[in-house]
Design a protein around this nucleic acid. Structure first.
Length: 309
DNA sequence: AGCCAGGCTCTCG
DNA sequence: CGAGAGCATGGC
């Protein structure tokens, strides 16, 4: 079987990182974790590659192509996995800053080594963010899974069916009724298909957007119907790996910050933005990821409504 | 039963 | 400008 070894950065908690990616529930959308092995199907041009990644000793992750492939496929898969798991991000400055943040540093035991995982493409992050607008994360995950399993490309590995995220063409060409059957609102169907059309036309090419500043990306993305600031900021964090973006309009983020820092007093978007700048810059994006991971773990542990004491 | 969820657009003063 | 309605649906 085709395999190679990838060096992990420091710090890196591999199991925590892949758990975060699946909402600590084993499977979420295109991502699957079984017994410490992360399964993911990705696209390389017209091909779909099945990949596994698992810890293979201290500081090492073993990457395999369980269904085979060329050595160029393996090199591509390895590079993609390092991107998905954000192995290139330097966390030490963020951890130093946590020393001055009594709240986030309290989470350090639980979160140390968490890497700010990414989507495969900008298109994927856009669609997933659009699906997640306004509704609860539980409902959003359910709808996303339905979309991925209906319009994605299946591959079977070790008895598990993996799905590569749907192509822009597959969503754009889909009958709106089949999207509606996956419980997407008719408005969001318009947004998602409009995004898919732009993606198919090559509008979200990674390298081009990666060269722009945070605000330039926001300015470009919010021109798209259905994409507001929150969605654009989410794409910056999830797809482009920006580490200093704070989606201050996010309701769940406002509430968790309110709980943890303001004795549950309500804070608005402006107040969160000001607080984030003073408290977490230049690592506001990493702080966001860590706070959401905290929420995901708390929810997975069965305490979704956490009443502050 | 009804209200709320990790927003956004559209309409109306 | 700001405020308010409508969207979809699982969970409480």
């Amino acid at each position: 079987m085709l395999k190679t070894t990838l060096q992990t950065p420091y710090p890196c908690d591999f199991n925590l990182t892949i758990g975060h990616q699946t909402f600590f529930r084993g499977r979420a959308g295109a991502d699957l974790v079984v017994d410490g092995t992360y399964y993911r199907a990705i696209r390389r041009g017209p091909k779909v590659l099945a990949i596994t990644a698992r810890e293979a000793g201290p500081g090492q992750v073993e990457i395999t192509l369980p269904l085979g492939g060329t050595s160029a496929d393996l090199a591509f898969a390895t590079k993609t996995m390092a991107h998905l798991l954000a192995f290139d991000v330097e966390l030490s400055g963020f951890y130093e800053m946590l020393g001055h943040d009594p709240v986030l540093s309290k989470m350090a035991d639980m979160l140390r080594g968490l890497r700010p995982t990414r989507s495969e493409t900008i298109f994927e992050a856009l669609v997933v963010a659009i699906i997640g607008q306004q509704i609860s994360s539980v409902v959003a995950r359910m709808i996303r899974d339905g979309i991925v399993e209906t319009f994605g490309t299946p591959v079977i590995v070790d008895g598990y069916t993996l799905f590569a995220f749907p192509t822009p063409e597959s969503l754009f060409n889909a009958d709106p009724e089949t999207l509606r059957a996956q419980k997407l609102s008719s408005r969001k169907i318009e947004y998602a298909q409009g995004t898919a059309r732009r993606a198919a036309e090559g509008e979200f090419e990674f390298d081009r957007l990666a060269a722009l500043s945070d605000e330039e990306v926001v300015a470009e993305l919010i021109k798209i119907r259905g994409v507001g600031r929150w969605t654009a900021e989410w794409v910056l964090i999830r797809a482009l790996g920006r580490i200093d973006v704070l989606p201050a309009g996010d309701l769940a983020l406002r509430r968790v910050v309110s709980d943890l820092y303001f004795e549950s007093a309500t804070i608005n978007e402006t107040e969160l933005a000001e607080f984030g700048e003073k408290q977490w810059a230049p690592y506001r994006g990493l702080a966001t990821t860590y706070l959401f991971s905290f929420l995901r773990q708390r929810r997975a542990a069965g305490d979704p409504h956490h009443t502050p004491t």
